[in-house]
């Protein structure tokens, strides 16, 4: 599924936050997005976009460098039993990356699942000039903010340009380098991968409601994380591509309600008729 959405300009993060709040309800604010069509954007932001590659496998053989300076492949970091939150940032980014990561950290604190048990996190730098040392600093900073020990499984990776490009292409993350400001222009998004490394959900913005993150993790976990009750809840909330949120899903709600009512009545009638047949009073 390839779905184009427009970028959120770094300078309009404040506006985005307002829009996020307004779009919390299904059918909320989808209009502003229409205004930022590709052609109306400043040249620096052309080619900055997310093309949703839902269900696409990320390349597991990518050769990257972790925060300790060790060479790792992406496949080694995917443990195969928990979903993974993937973010693409760069470390000297003046604003948006921090907003995204801080927003993610806030949401991870409240999500009700422990990093390392319910899910893992991977952050990859899109800037080939970033070094493992900077990875290390970043990692410390965010793990402290999260209140997690150093050994928590949140990898910060750097790597050569063509390796990172392969990853970005696989997940549909499109960014450009603006030579005049020496900054990267890139979308604000976190991706949730299935344990096998397939793209499951995109979470947009710099502020991730913990419900959205939790539902995305449960959905990506394919029954391996979260409680069974939450999988029931998940059928009442559905990812709404128009608002890019998990919205109240009336069909799921109805289906559940119908099952409950029908099940209750069927049980009542089943037990009653079973007794009648046992008594032999149906003649």
């Amino acid at each position: 599924m390839h779905r184009r959405i427009s970028d959120i300009r770094p300078l309009f993060v404040a506006a985005l936050l307002v829009a996020t709040a307004a779009s919390a309800l299904p059918g909320g604010a989808s209009a502003p997005r229409e205004l930022t069509e590709e052609a109306t954007r400043p040249p620096a932001l052309r080619g900055v976009d997310v093309e949703e590659h839902l269900g696409e496998q990320v390349p597991l053989d990518l050769a990257l460098t972790d925060e300790e300076g060790r060479a790792v492949t992406l496949g080694q970091l995917l443990p195969g039993n928990t979903p993974v939150v993937l973010t693409l940032v760069y470390y000297r980014c003046p604003m948006l990356c921090n907003l995204v990561l801080n927003g993610l950290v806030r949401s991870m604190r409240d999500v009700g699942m422990t990093l390392g048990e319910g899910y893992r996190a991977v952050t990859v730098s899109i800037d080939p000039l970033d070094t493992p040392l900077k990875s290390q600093q970043r990692r410390r900073h965010h793990l402290q903010a999260l209140g997690m020990p150093e050994r928590a499984p949140w990898s910060f990776l750097t790597g050569p340009d063509e390796q990172v490009k392969r990853l970005a292409d696989a997940v549909g993350f499109r960014y450009t380098y603006d030579a005049s400001t020496q900054q990267y222009a890139h979308p604000a998004v976190a991706m949730v991968l299935t344990p096998e490394g397939k793209v499951s959900r995109y979470l947009y913005g710099a502020d991730f409601p913990q419900r959205d993150l939790r539902l995305a993790l449960i959905e990506a976990g394919q029954g391996k994380v979260g409680t069974s009750f939450e999988r029931v809840i998940l059928s009442c909330f559905k990812y709404d591509p128009a608002t890019k949120r998990y919205g109240f899903y009336i069909f799921g709600f109805l289906r559940l309600g119908a099952l409950v009512v029908f099940g209750a009545l069927a049980t009542l009638l089943g037990v009653s008729w079973w007794r009648e047949f046992k008594k032999g009073s149906v003649a």
């Binding site: 009542l268 009638l269 009653s272 008729w273 007794r275 009648e276 009073s281």
Partner: peptide
């Protein structure tokens, strides 16, 4: 329902 089943 319950009356018809149980109180006849």
């Amino acid at each position: 329902i319950v009356t018809v089943h149980t109180m006849r």
